[in-house]
Structures are given as structure tokens and as C-alpha cells.
């Protein structure tokens, strides 16, 4: 893989901003959220050491968008190319998961695909993972190896910029004057940094490594009391599904503009009481604990059966966001213990 060196992050961002809208992580109170980069007035750009608080899905699958209109000739404005900077390995892997649903399925979501084609991904290494990061349980890393256009690794005196795609290559070619060659010593330094972060990630997930595949654990703990206990802590705020980079439920909402009709596509949450309810009133998931179980089954059983991967990247955002103090790692651990107990009892 080709790599180049740049001493200032701003140099790279300004070059990106020449042809694209650029979004960078920026502090909003104490949280990192994506903010539009303005080369003229954005303050000094800081490298984000950890993932943002908000998920990258909002760029491809916005909170609300117009999915269709009726009785209007209004043209949808053409999408502009955009770059998202500072995505971590968990974010990049979450895009691969959403791609499976919206872009690679036999039914494609034209809205998603249009945005995806315009997206330029600038990922970056994690240098200070959060305590809640548990990507190591899901083959995640503190750095990303595929799925990006460019990847940034902070290093003494600047940044190594890896090129991960044809689009990334063209960008570097076009701006070759801005970049220098990477001294071999810096690559070694980067490898050492990455290894240290990886060790930390693995250390903090060690106690949560399941003793057997999560799919099997969940299939065996369908009748567990744990879900009812969890429901006591859950305050039904739906924050877990909002910040989750892979949760992608939505509803279609018909509305009226002044002189035409719209169908909006809006994020939904399987934690909502009426989520699966039909017009006649039947509702398979009336009970909160059942909804929580369904969410885990979707993530670790059904999605896996359908698409071959878990619908979780271990970013830990749901843990940070959970107002009821529910920690997905602990939940999976408890379920694992229960599954193991069942096994031992059956063996007796």
C-alpha cells in the first residue's frame, strides 16, 4: 500500500476542501461530533484520538430525508462530493455493514447508494481508545486496513497518510506537491504505536471474551430472566439505537408540503413500544425486555445468518449513551455465563 507524509493536518484538510465538503470531528461541549470544516475560519484542527460520539451512518442514512414526493416536478438538488475525516476502524466497518443492507442487497436503497458514491473516507488511527471500546471482541482494531480512501496515522512531526483506494490515489497524485515520502523509521514508530493501542484494546476486552459464539449463547438464553431485569434499568430513551453505527431501522412518514406530498424516511428504533405493532393492534413485542432481546437477536443471530457478520462493531457508543447504565459487554457476559450454566446442568 502506498503512503505519503504530511506535517500538518490542515494542509490535507484544505486540499480536500477544494473539491468537497469536508466534515471533521470537533468538540461540542465535551463530545466529539462531526462539524463542517471551513478552511478560512475553522480553528486549529485537532487530531481525534478516539471515535466521535455520533455515528457515521448520519452521512449515508440521515436522521430524516425526503424519500419520495408526489404531485410535484421539484428536482432533488444534486449531491456534492463530501469527505468525512477521523473515522475509526469501527466506523469504517460499520459502513461495510450498512453497505450490505442498503447497497449490496438485491434491493438497493437509491438514496443511500447516491450518498455512498459521493463519500470520501479519511480514517485515522485510534491513539487513546475509550474505556468503553470493545472492538477487540469483534475483530476490530485501533487502526483500519481496508474500506478507506485515505488513512491518517499521527506520528512524530506529522502524519502518515495511507492510500486505500483509487479515489485516494487520485487525490494524492493531484496534490503531490503537498506530500513527502515516508521515512522508514516513521513506519516502524507507527507500528509500535499501533501495537500498543491494540494491546490496550485487547486488555480491556479480555474479561468479556465469550466462551462460545454469541449466536449460540443468545439462541440458548431465549428464556433468560436477564432480559426482564434489563428492562428495569432501561428508560426507553432509544439512545442506544440512535448512536449505534449499525442500527438502521427507519419508518416512512407521509406528509404534506404547501403544494405537494412527501414520504420521509426517518430513523426508528426497535426499542419503541409500537415499533412492530400492526393496525389491528397486535404487537409481538409489547414487553420491553422482549424488545431488548429482539435487538440482540437481530445483531448477533439474524443478521449473522443473513449477511455473515455480526451487526455490531464494538464501538461502545451504546454504553456511553445509556442513561440507564446498561453495558452491552456485561449483558453479553451474563448471558454467556447463563448459557454455560445450562450446559453444565444438562451434562449432569
Amino acid at each position: 500500500m502506498d503512503a505519503v507524509f504530511v506535517s500538518k493536518l490542515k494542509t490535507l484538510l484544505d486540499a480536500l476542501a477544494e473539491k468537497m465538503d469536508v466534515y471533521v470531528p470537533a468538540k461540542a461541549s465535551k463530545h466529539l461530533v462531526f462539524t463542517k470544516y471551513d478552511p478560512g475560519s475553522s480553528p486549529a484542527v485537532e487530531f481525534n484520538a478516539v471515535r466521535t460520539c455520533t455515528p457515521v451512518k448520519e452521512f449515508l442514512f440521515p436522521l430524516r430525508e425526503t424519500a419520495a414526493t408526489m404531485q410535484t416536478q421539484a428536482q432533488v438538488p444534486a449531491l456534492k462530493a463530501f469527505a468525512v475525516v477521523g473515522l475509526k476502524d469501527c466506523d469504517v466497518r460499520s459502513i461495510a455493514i450498512l453497505d450490505k443492507v442498503f447497497a449490496e442487497d438485491d434491493f438497493k436503497d437509491a438514496l443511500y447508494v447516491a450518498r455512498r458514491e459521493k463519500m470520501f473516507i479519511v480514517s485515522s488511527d485510534c491513539t487513546e481508545p475509550a474505556q468503553t471500546c470493545f472492538c477487540a471482541l469483534f475483530e476490530g482494531k485501533g487502526f483500519t486496513e481496508k474500506g478507506f480512501d485515505l488513512n491518517i496515522s499521527p506520528i512524530k512531526g506529522g502524519f502518515i497518510v495511507d492510500i486505500g483506494s483509487r479515489k485516494g490515489h487520485e487525490f494524492v497524485e493531484r496534490n503531490s506537491g503537498l506530500f513527502a515520502d515516508v521515512p522508514a523509521a516513521l513506519l516502524e514508530e507507527r507500528d509500535a504505536n499501533r501495537a500498543a493501542v491494540q494491546q490496550q484494546l485487547e486488555r480491556q476486552s479480555a474479561e468479556f471474551i465469550p466462551s462460545e459464539p454469541l449466536q449460540r449463547i443468545l439462541e440458548r438464553t431465549q428464556d433468560s430472566e436477564i432480559f426482564a431485569q434489563l428492562a428495569k434499568d432501561c428508560i426507553e430513551c432509544q439512545a442506544c439505537t440512535r448512536v449505534c453505527p449499525t442500527c438502521h431501522c427507519f419508518y416512512l412518514y407521509d406528509g404534506k408540503q404547501q403544494d405537494y406530498f412527501t414520504k420521509m424516511k426517518i430513523w426508528d428504533s426497535c426499542m419503541r413500544f409500537g415499533y412492530a405493532m400492526v393496525a389491528g393492534g397486535a404487537n409481538p413485542n409489547k414487553v420491553l425486555g422482549e424488545r431488548m432481546k429482539h435487538r440482540l437477536m437481530h445483531k448477533f443471530v439474524y443478521f449473522l445468518e443473513r449477511y455473515g457478520v455480526n451487526m455490531c462493531v464494538g464501538c461502545g457508543r451504546c454504553i456511553d449513551a445509556d442513561a440507564g447504565g446498561i453495558d452491552l459487554r456485561q449483558v453479553l457476559k451474563k448471558l454467556g455465563e447463563e448459557a454455560r450454566l445450562q450446559k453444565t446442568e444438562r451434562a449432569k
Binding site: 443492507v101 442498503f102 442487497d105 434491493f107 436503497d109 438502521h248 431501522c249 427507519f250 419508518y251 416512512l252 426508528d268 426497535c270 415499533y275 412492530a276 405493532m277 400492526v278 389491528g280 397486535a282 409481538p284 429482539h294 437481530h298 443471530v301 439474524y302 445468518e305 443473513r306
Partner: peptide, 24 residues
């Protein structure tokens, strides 16, 4: 099967029945 089919194309999630999307 009668479920809350909404998007019709196996994405929005409302009509899930196990691993199946009833709509698709």
C-alpha cells in the same frame, strides 16, 4: 403472515420474523 410491513424491501426492520423480513 401479517406484520408491520413498511419499506417493502427488507430494510426498515418492522416486519422481522426471526431472520426473515416478511415483506421481502
Amino acid at each position: 403472515m401479517e406484520k408491520n410491513m413498511s419499506c417493502g424491501i427488507g430494510k426498515c426492520g418492522h416486519c422481522m420474523l426471526g431472520k426473515y423480513y416478511v415483506c421481502k
